[in-house]
Simulated assay, not measured.
Amino acid sequence: MNDKHRGAWYIVASAAGFATLGILIKSAFAGGANISTVLSGRFLLAAIFLFAILRARGVNCRLERKTAFQLILMGAVGYDGMSGLYANAIHYLPASLTSMLLYAYPALVTVLALIIGEERFNAPKGIALVVCSVGLVSLLGASFEGARLAGVLSGLGAAVIYSCYIIIGNRILKNIDPMVTSLWVCGAAGLASLCYGLIRGELVLDITPAGWLSIVGIAIFPTIFGVMGFFAGLRLIGATNASIISMLEPLITVLLSALLLGERITPLQGFGGAVLLFGGLILQLWGHEARHETVTEV
Rank of each mutant, 00 (worst) to 15 (best):
A188W: 12
C186T: 08
G211R: 13
A33Q: 01
Y165N: 14
D80A: 15
V137T: 08
F144Y: 14
V204W: 05
L101V: 02
I245Q: 06
A19P: 08
D3E: 14
Q284R: 06
L101M: 03
G233R: 15
A142Q: 04
L114T: 09
P209F: 12
T294Y: 06
I244D: 05
V298P: 15
F230G: 10
S27A: 13
L234P: 05
V38C: 03
Y86D: 03
L136Q: 03
R291Y: 04
V59P: 03
E64I: 01
L198S: 01
V227G: 00
I265N: 00
I237Q: 07
G273W: 05
T208G: 10
V298Q: 15
I176N: 03
L213A: 13
M228L: 05
V131C: 08
D206I: 03
G187T: 10
I168H: 10
F231G: 01
A150D: 14
E118I: 01
M100G: 05
G190A: 06
F49D: 02
A47I: 03
I245K: 07
A242L: 07
G22K: 01
F225M: 14
N241Y: 12
A104R: 02
C132E: 02
F225D: 00
S257P: 02
L139D: 05
Q284M: 13
K66R: 08
P209Q: 10
V185Q: 04
E145N: 07
V227K: 00
V111L: 13
L63Q: 14
A8G: 08
A8D: 14
K26P: 00
I252S: 01
F69Q: 11
A239Y: 12
D206F: 09
S243T: 11
I35T: 08
G117H: 06
L283F: 11
L205N: 01
Y92D: 09
D177A: 06
I48H: 00
V134M: 07
K174L: 08
I168M: 14
F230A: 06
E249H: 12
S40M: 08
A188L: 12
V59W: 07
A13D: 01
R42Q: 03
K174W: 11
S14T: 09
S193H: 10
E202D: 09
E64D: 11
T253S: 15
T110W: 10
L101Y: 03
L24M: 02
T266L: 09
C186F: 00
A33W: 04
L45T: 03
A56E: 05
L277P: 02
G190C: 06
I161L: 15
V295I: 14
Y92M: 06
A142L: 05
R120G: 03
N60Q: 14
H288L: 05
E289T: 13
I166Q: 05
V59G: 04
E297K: 07
R62C: 08
A210I: 07
F18I: 08
W286F: 13
N170A: 14
M247P: 12
I161T: 09
S243D: 04
G272K: 09
C61W: 10
P209D: 04
L85H: 10
A56F: 09
N60L: 09
M82N: 12
I25H: 00
S83C: 04
